[in-house]
Amino acid sequence: MGKPIMFQWAINHAIAEEMRRDPTVFIIGEDVGKPGGPFGVTRGIIDEFGPERAVDTPISEGAIIGLCVGAAAAGLRPVAEIMFMNFITLCVEELYNQASKMRWMFGAQVKVPMVVRAMTAGGYGAGPHHSSSLESWFASMPGLKVVMPSTPVNAKGLMKAAIRDDNPVLYVEPLSSYRIKAEIPEGDYITPIGKCEIVREGTDITIVSVGRMLQEALKAVDVLEKDGIKPELIDLLTINPLDMETIYASVKKTNRLVIIHEAKQTMGIGAEIAASVQEKMFDWLDAPVERVAAPFTHIAFQPKLEQHYLPDATKLVAKVKQMLG
């Protein structure tokens, strides 16, 4: 393993390595050049590759993503930054009607290899227009892959996989993880899209965590293990396509399932997983499938309200104990 690096530099290194490897890869977005984005994720890329491959744009989310679709259809591999995920509402048109449908709609005449980076920012008091987790909207779009890294290791591996993928990929990165450090493997590696990872093996209950909720789930597992409960922890990593086989196999072993995600519970990823598990695994379940997720309201700027809104380790521990109790 190499020396520890921060999550945000793992993303940065993945992009830079892919740009060195493949001249068709470029980055584009607001502030991606000299500033390197609001939190410096793309810092230094413009110095190595120049403004032709680190393209600063006007504040025009729709045109940024439209440009990526047109460029990808013409043979390039754009990596776009959309900044806070709420801003993606300004380019749902391009992602849904254009990027996700183009290959199918045109009878496979084109490929649309592009990556769109969007940042979730729960926990920072960033308020209703800067904190939302909207991944489930996009996970319902055939033709658009959605990944949610949770550690520096998979942040790098998933970014490299996303850039090499011949399809549009939405890459959802959590602001609160940017400063997490970990040793990452030396040299070139990818984290495969469409595969979840069993982070902790156990026998009593399966916990599926989504994106940054891995950090909360790890804390919860530590607490639960001290109480003699052995959860199996699965990091979902890809939201579309879902790796249900790994989840089914785990449920077969534990007979209980809880899903934790930062996005709202209503119409969320947890609902989709729960529905699939009860369809396929009904006889293997000893308890209803449960979810720990945000309530059906808006995320608050106010710290006390935001804390109540966001799922965390404490809420997960309580839910698991209730399910096993």
Binding site: G66, G70, A74, L76, P78, Q98
Partner: peptide, 12 residues
């Protein structure tokens, strides 16, 4: 929407 895609092909 063709306009948003056209700038991408022109970019390429």
């Amino acid at each position: 929407e063709g306009m948003r895609l056209a700038i991408g092909t022109a970019f390429a």
